[in-house]
Every structure is written in structure tokens, then in C-alpha cells.
Design a binder for these strands. Structure first.
Length: 558
RNA sequence: GGCUCCGUAGCUCAGUGGAUAGAGCGUCGGUUUCCUAAACCGUGCGUCGCAGGUUCGAUUCCUGCCGGGGCCA
């Protein structure tokens, strides 16, 4: 695998640290712990630091600072690009590098362009992410929106980190909710024709169903009133699911979220996978009959109680097709399954994992990311949401009010297991308080400079003297830009998308700071200007790629 | 009651077992004859909910408790 410039330098440094440990006779090759090389928060602590001396304290049975001294004595400065080494604190070894290597980043980044940041860390591991999976019984609301943003961003980050990531939406188009949808729609259809018909008790009250009923009346008149119940039901069911799914798909695609696979629950019935998964559970001895129902002995696998698979009336619980679906995923050869679920589903995790284990799979291969609630704030007050009255704020409404960029950014900004306060006023404000604008402005600012920079450009990058980039702000920018591949790898590994947003903000901030301190286009100093233009191009590419990962547009002007 | 998430600065939140715990906003004060001031610079701001435990070292891991949100019963 091709290593980035930063990785090469770090690797070299790690190798030299190991050499120093061996030379100092502090530990044998086998005893040496993994070399941890961190980037200190405080610049005064060097470019990189290692805690090796502390880690060796027990093995070498010496005080950390004493070990550190021995290490420094035996360290080959020349090989490690080291300008200075110091021992600090309880035994940290701080390395100050000769930062000239950083300028090598620029040609690499300019060459890689959109691919900059791409790595093979995930080594093609096949990961499936199932997210949103809202029932086709209405519009997507804010919880779905957050799930959509999180899932899609995860997909993008995982792919950039070298995983093979497949997004999938599970359509609950069988089950009770759909029966309810059908009877709700039937009532609305009849009502639109002026025929009295009551809505089912817990029917879907939303306006969208009313409209669908009207559409049906306009298009088909009373044609389906006179058909048999079975025929009408079948028709209304398909009509409803189709239309509501079309709407959901449109909402998602306008939100920048795209799925490879739309998996239908009904298909599990048709293919016989539900009966076969039940057979499989029975064969393995994990089911029993009681009170006329078929139970799954999930407590054997850590669940707090056993679960019904087939109710006494012969119908399936919603768990049953779900188990079949997850088995289907494994049979398709995914190494890892990730489900992005709303907080209201957390109680579902143990039984799902139990089912996987009962079927002979390692339950750790199923990972569930729980998305906590979103609270909307407007004019400093919490916006109340009520599903009952059909007044829940929808993805579509918020998208129209604040735009996709703000939504995507805000949803990617927080760790998904924290509650999220979404401030509408902040999201639309064109001020420096709004992080979306702040980040986008950094990109637009560079584009604006580059537009004016044409007179400074030379025929090729080789003619630009990048060694002129030595100021503090320039080094800061180069380091930041060089971190990008690592940030991607980390956030992929930890499934922590907020790391990407944090990084993006930092990078924008570093750029703004540089911009105010140094002049990029200086007619008095064309050589330096050319070098800085090249640097700006590298920063622009990095900003753009990072924004792509969270699904935010990178405007060329604002 | 069971399960789960959260508890870090006045507010909203970052923080892969490491150094003096960070950012934005808010406070106060500065910066533009100059590439977009949607920006920058400076300034204060903390019993990391509490108590134990593991560790050379805990905001981070474990246990218990307290407080808040959510789900289930």
C-alpha cells in the first residue's frame, strides 16, 4: 500500500524509536509495546511525541524519565528527520522535526485531487449499512433525517478509508402497519368520493394519506369501490406503498442520500426465507411452543426474556422477518453489518444479536448505531413535535427552511449517541456563528484567490519553489492538510463521523488564520506567491474532499 | 421497576489511558488605504455529576450512587 508523506515520516520515526530501545538494551524485540506516536495538542510539545518511556517503565523496571534519557542518547537523529528531541513531563519524548518534508504533500495532493484522503486501511472489508428503513406509511421526519445523514456520511467515510460499504434500505412493506395504511387509505379514498367511511382507530391521520385518497378518486373514480375486498386491498396496498416510497426516495435523493439496495420485506415471504429461518432455529433447538405460540429462546443468548416468533393466531411478530432479513445479509457475504437505528429501537438490540448467535454467527458482526433524538429550536424555544396531530416536522420541511448543507453539517457535527439540539436560526444565519458558512467560506475564499492568481502561475509545479513555505501559518496548514487521511481512517474505525466535521472546522479555521496573517498574492514577491498558490490549491482540495464526505457543497463563491 | 444514552466553561458541545482538559457562542477589548470583515487577533471562563476500584498515570476503563432524556413493562 502507498503510504502518505506523513505516514512515511511517522513510520520512520517509529522504526528509529524501536532501534533506540534495542540499542539502549531496555527491552527485547518481543517485549516492546506498539509505538504510540501522537500529535501533541500543544505545539510547544513538538511535532510528535511518544510515551514509550512510560510504557517501558514496568518492563525495564526503571523510572520513566531515566528510560527516556537512555532512549534519547541512543536515538539516531539524522535518520528520523529530527531537529530536536526533548524529554518532558512524566517521561514524554517530544520530537521537533525538520518540517521540510511537509512541502512534499503539495504535489501529492494536487496529483490525487478528488482521491486525496483515499486509503486502503479497510482492505476491502465488506460492510453493509442499513439505515433509515422508515415504514412507507408517511413522510420522513427529523429522526429519519439524522439517521440518513449519519448513515450516508458513514458510507462515504468508510469507502474513502478503503472499505467496501453497501447502503441498504429495508422496506417494511408487509406487517401490521401496512395493513393499517391500506385501511386508512381505503377510508380516505371512499371519503374523497363522498362515501361515508370511518378511519381505523389508530389509522394514519396525515394529510399525505388524504391527498393520496383524492388522487385515487380522481384517477380511478369509484372503480375500486365495486371490486372485491381482496382485490381492492391488494390494489390500495400496492398503490400506497409505491407512492409513499416514491416520496421517501425523492426526499432522500434531494437530501443527497442514495441507496444501492431497497430490500422488500415482502420478498422474504415470497422467497420462503421466513419459513426457512424458522426451520433453522428449530433445528438448532432454540425454539419451543407454549400457549399456542412459537417462541425463540433468546434468553440463552443474553436477552432478558424469550420472544414470540409466531403468535397463537398464526401470524408472525415483526421480529421474525427481521431475523430472516439479517440472515439474508450474512448469506450475501458481508463481513460486518451496521444498523443505524432510532433511539426507540434500542431495546431491540439484544434479541437481534441473540438471533444472530442462535443462527451460528458471531453477534459482534452486527453493530447497531443508535441515533438519539433531535430537538428543534427556533427563536430560542423548543419546537414541539407531535406525531398524533400529523404535525411532526418533516425532513422535507426542514430542508426547505434551512437547506441541505446546514442539515447535513449539523447532523454530522455531533456524536450520534448524544441528543442533538438543532437551532434553526443558527442554521440559516449568514454569520460567523454558523459553522457551515464558516467552512464553506474558507473554500470560496480560496477559489476567489485562485481566480485572481492566473498571472502567478507557472507552466508546471516543478518550477515552483515550495521550500519557501516556512512561516508558522504555512507549516500549520501543511500539517493540517497532511492529517486528513488519518482522520478518515480514525473516524471510519470508530464510526465517529463527528471527527470529520471537527477536522473540517479546524482546517477552515487554520486557513482563515493564515489568510489574515499572510498575503498569498503579492506582486512584490512572485516566487513566494507561486508557492502559496500551490498551497492554496492543496488546501482547497482537502476542504472539498472533507465536505464531500459529509455531503456538504463546496461553493466557489459566496 | 428493567434497559439504554447523556452529565466537561455562563450556553452548545469536542476530547483514540497520558503533559497546564479544548473549540464555538456569549463577555470585554482590538484589527480593513491590502487577495471577500460570512474573517482575524487578544481576554477571562472548570470540584470533567459524586464515591470507590484497576493503573506508573483516569475526564477516558470497571462498579455503585445521584440527576436528566428516551424506550419497554
Amino acid at each position: 500500500m502507498k503510504m502518505t508523506v506523513v505516514e512515511q515520516v511517522k513510520q520512520q520515526l517509529k522504526d528509529e524509536i524501536i532501534q533506540a530501545v534495542l540499542k539502549a538494551g531496555l527491552a527485547t524485540g518481543e517485549q516492546i509495546p506498539d509505538v504510540v506516536l501522537e500529535t501533541p495538542k500543544d505545539k510547544a510539545h513538538g511535532d510528535f511525541a511518544t510515551n514509550m518511556a512510560m510504557q517501558l517503565a514496568r518492563i525495564a523496571k526503571q523510572a520513566p524519565r531515566k528510560i527516556a534519557e537512555a532512549l534519547v542518547e541512543n536515538f539516531d537523529k539524522k535518520k528520523g528527520h529530527i531537529r530536536e528531541i526533548e524529554i518532558a513531563g512524566p517521561g514524554f519524548i517530544n520530537f521537533f522535526l525538520d518540517n521540510s518534508y511537509l512541502t512534499r504533500l503539495i504535489p501529492t495532493i494536487l496529483e490525487e485531487g478528488d482521491d486525496y484522503g483515499q486509503s486502503t486501511k479497510g482492505s476491502g472489508k465488506k460492510i453493509q449499512i442499513e439505515y433509515v428503513s422508515a415504514n412507507p406509511t408517511g413522510s420522513l421526519h427529523l429522526g429519519h433525517a439524522r439517521g440518513a445523514a449519519v448513515g450516508d456520511t458513514l458510507i462515504r467515510i468508510l469507502r474513502k478509508a478503503g472499505y467496501e460499504a453497501s447502503p441498504e434500505y429495508y422496506i417494511n412493506d408487509a406487517g401490521n402497519q401496512i395493513g393499517n395504511l391500506t385501511t386508512s387509505l381505503e377510508a380516505r379514498y371512499f371519503q374523497a368520493l363522498g362515501i361515508e367511511k370511518e378511519m381505523p382507530e389508530d389509522g394514519y391521520q396525515g394529510q399525505d394519506i388524504v391527498k393520496l385518497g383524492q388522487q385515487l378518486a380522481e384517477k380511478y373514480g369509484d372503480e375500486y369501490v365495486h371490486k372485491s375486498d381482496k382485490e381492492r386491498n391488494q390494489f390500495l396496498r400496492n398503490f400506497g406503498v409505491e407512492h409513499l416510497m416514491a416520496k421517501i426516495k425523492k426526499d432522500l435523493s434531494d437530501f443527497g442520500v442514495h441507496f444501492d439496495v431497497w430490500f422488500s420485506e415482502t420478498s422474504l415471504y415470497e422467497s420462503g426465507e421466513i419459513t426457512s429461518v424458522l426451520e433453522k432455529l428449530k433445528e438448532r433447538g432454540h425454539t419451543y411452543e407454549q400457549d399456542g405460540a412459537l417462541w425463540f429462546a433468546s434468553t440463552k443468548f443474553g436477552d432478558d426474556k424469550d420472544r414470540v416468533l409466531i403468535k397463537s393466531d398464526g401470524s408472525y411478530t415483526y421480529l421474525t422477518p427481521d431475523i430472516a432479513y439479517h440472515l439474508n445479509k450474512f448469506l450475501r457475504g458481508f463481513d460486518q453489518l451496521i444498523n443505524v437505528w432510532g433511539a426507540d429501537h434500542h431495546g431491540y438490540i439484544p434479541r437481534m444479536k441473540a438471533a444472530m448467535e442462535a443462527l451460528g454467527y458471531d453477534p459482534n458482526r452486527l453493530e447497531v448505531q443508535i441515533i438519539q433524538l433531535v430537538n428543534l429550536f427556533k427563536d430560542g424555544e423548543k419546537v414541539k413535535m407531535s406525531k398524533r396531530t400529523g404535525k411532526a416536522v418533516t425532513l422535507r420541511e426542514l430542508m426547505e427552511e434551512v437547506g441541505t448543507d446546514a442539515m447535513r453539517y449539523f447532523f454530522a457535527m455531533r456524536s450520534s449517541d448524544s441528543h442533538l439540539d438543532f437551532d434553526i436560526d443558527l442554521a440559516v444565519s449568514r454569520s460567523n456563528e454558523n459553522p457551515v458558512f464558516y467552512v464553506q467560506y474558507a473554500h470560496a475564499r480560496i477559489c476567489s484567490m485562485l481566480k485572481r492568481a492566473e498571472s502567478y502561475e507557472t507552466a508546471s509545479l516543478e518550477e515552483v519553489d515550495l521550500s519557501l513555505l516556512t512561516s508558522e501559518k504555512e507549516i500549520d496548514l501543511l500539517k493540517k492538510v497532511g492529517e486528513f487521511p488519518e482522520v478518515i481512517a480514525d473516524s471510519a474505525e470508530q464510526l465517529a463521523i463527528q471527527r470529520m466535521t471537527t477536522y473540517l472546522f479546524d482546517l477552515a479555521s487554520t486557513l482563515h488564520s493564515f489568510y489574515n496573517a499572510e498575503k498569498v498574492l503579492d506582486p512584490e514577491n512572485k516566487e513566494l506567491s507561486r508557492a502559496r498558490v500551490a498551497l492554496m490549491k492543496a488546501v482547497k482540495i482537502t476542504l472539498k474532499n472533507a465536505m464531500d464526505l459529509i455531503g456538504v457543497n463546496a461553493p466557489v463563491s459566496m
